[in-house]
């Protein structure tokens, strides 16, 4: 049953993408439908429907949070770049995530790459290596906040956030 819902919601999403691609032109809809059906089945092979389901409303809130933070990220790097002393203190930090493996961790890693001052280097299970533009920044607090938000997107509850395993450098 959940597979049917997954296929249907993916097909609706892809149809919306097709509609945007063709700028609302209805003449190519037959071809579009074939592509949408094929793409949904391929997506099913690549990303099987898991236990983690995205909830629409928290996801929308997450997107707003994400856009706000990525604006801050861009301004933050621009500010550092334009100041003559170039205030950066780069280094690696390692964290263990409390999110379940799979899409929640993957979403977190990709989000962190666009958050202020952090870049995901490697994600191995729940172990996340971050490269930080400035290791003096409150990276851990940032990560915990994002983790909580992603947990809400997938309808999970987290008791304690990510904990730091001690970075090098």
């Amino acid at each position: 049953m959940s597979t049917v819902i997954t296929i249907l919601s993916r097909m609706i999403l892809l149809l919306l993408v097709w509609w945007a691609f063709t700028e609302g032109d209805r003449s190519g809809i037959g071809f579009g439908l074939v592509i949408v059906i094929l793409a949904s089945f391929i997506s099913l092979r690549l990303f099987p429907p898991g236990t983690a389901r995205v909830r629409p409303l928290p996801f929308l809130l997450f997107m707003l949070f994400f856009i706000g933070r990525s604006v801050v990220a861009g301004i933050d790097v621009a500010r550092r770049l334009l100041s003559p002393s170039l205030p950066v203190n780069p280094g690696y930090l390692t964290f263990y995530l409390s999110l379940p493996e799979g899409s929640p961790c993957w979403l977190l890693a990709n989000t962190m790459s666009l958050m202020p001052g952090t870049l995901s280097v490697s994600l191995d299970g729940t172990r996340l290596d971050l490269h930080c533009l400035d290791t003096r920044d409150p990276v851990e607090a940032d990560l915990k906040a994002v983790e909580q938000k992603i947990a809400r997107v997938f309808g999970l509850s987290l008791h304690d956030g990510a904990w730091r395993a001690g970075g090098n450098e």
Binding site: S70, V77, H131
Partner: peptide, 29 residues
């Protein structure tokens, strides 16, 4: 333009990527 400036001002690969991804995304936005 600032993102591209990052390529010149930063010396390491990873800090350059910080500049390119974040600042360029904002520019495109």
């Amino acid at each position: 333009a600032i993102g591209t400036l990052g390529l010149f001002r930063f010396s390491e690969t990873l800090t350059r990527i910080h500049a390119l991804t974040k600042v360029d995304n904002l520019g495109l936005g």
